[in-house]
């Protein structure tokens, strides 16, 4: 059985936010919506260090949906709109979602987003903040994003470019690509080569090998959510020049 997971090597992560942007562009997220975020741990501003001279540090942490094995969002969904597919992907059926947002409350990683309004309204507001009145795209009908709807084998709508108002959305591991045998956009679009995507159940997959060789941790492991996103912790510097490897950030 295939069970998809992801490894993010925090040593390799350069904090550039390309993963968040490619995710946004490919998955048609309007201004205000981000399925994935990258922040500097402990700092209010991205790429501003924490600590005191000379022991300043910047650790970048990308957070997509963790696609938990024991997913709290799945458990609380009253209508079965959020479910875990057999291959481990946690998905939202846009046609079944009633917008109750229990899942948003339940998710300890804060990755779920809600469409309070028509995405066009997000664009309008975004461009307004950027100083444009209404002429958002020069070509009025233009919106970025993978153009076609995607349904699972049993017909559930898990990707559509124009999300209806009142549904919850989140990272799908790019289900529309995974179903075509392609890796998620953030993996293909990571210039730092920080991400590995693959089958956790296949002992010969790259991801399994890496997880066997390297010590990895998962976010909020003690909650028992069993995320399928694994992080390789950053090497920690001790004083000047010396390098110590440690599991915790």
């Amino acid at each position: 059985m295939v069970r998809y997971g992801m490894v993010i090597d925090l040593n390799r992560c350069i904090g550039c936010r390309s993963c968040a942007v490619i995710c946004k562009m490919v998955n048609a997220q309007p201004p205000g919506t981000w399925w994935q975020r990258v922040e500097t741990v402990g700092s209010k501003e991205h790429m501003v260090p924490v600590g005191e001279y000379p022991n300043l540090s910047e650790v970048f942490l990308p957070v997509p949906c963790q696609h938990c094995e024991n997913a709290p969002c799945v458990k609380v969904c009253p209508v079965g709109a959020t479910w875990q597919r057999e291959d481990g992907l946690v998905l939202v059926d846009f046609e079944r979602c009633i917008g109750c947002r229990y899942c948003i409350t339940a998710c300890p990683y804060g990755v779920r987003q809600f469409n309070w309004q028509d995405p066009d309204e997000n664009f309008r507001q975004g461009f307004e903040r950027a100083g444009f009145d209404e002429n958002w795209f020069a070509d009025k009908d233009y919106k970025y994003g993978y153009p076609k709807d995607h349904r699972t084998e049993d017909g559930r709508l898990v990707y559509t470019k124009k999300r209806p108002r009142g549904v919850v959305e989140k990272c799908t591991f790019c289900v529309q690509f995974v179903d075509q045998g392609l890796a998620p956009a953030c993996v293909r679009g990571c210039p730092g080569n920080a991400r590995i995507f693959g089958d956790l159940d296949d002992p010969n997959s790259e991801i399994s090998k890496v997880l066997k060789d390297r010590s990895a941790f998962r976010l909020l492991e003690d909650l028992g959510t069993e995320p399928k996103v694994f992080y390789i912790p950053p090497a920690r510097k001790e004083g000047r020049g010396g390098v110590r490897y440690e599991k915790e950030i």
Binding site: C16, R17, S18, A20, V21, I22, K24, M25, F127, F132, N135, W136, F137, A138, D139, Y142, Y144, G189, P191
Partner: peptide
């Protein structure tokens, strides 16, 4: 990188 990935915002932008 993130700029090249979002270049469509300029091609079709206001």
């Amino acid at each position: 990188c993130l700029k090249g990935q979002s270049m469509v915002n300029l091609i079709y932008g206001p």
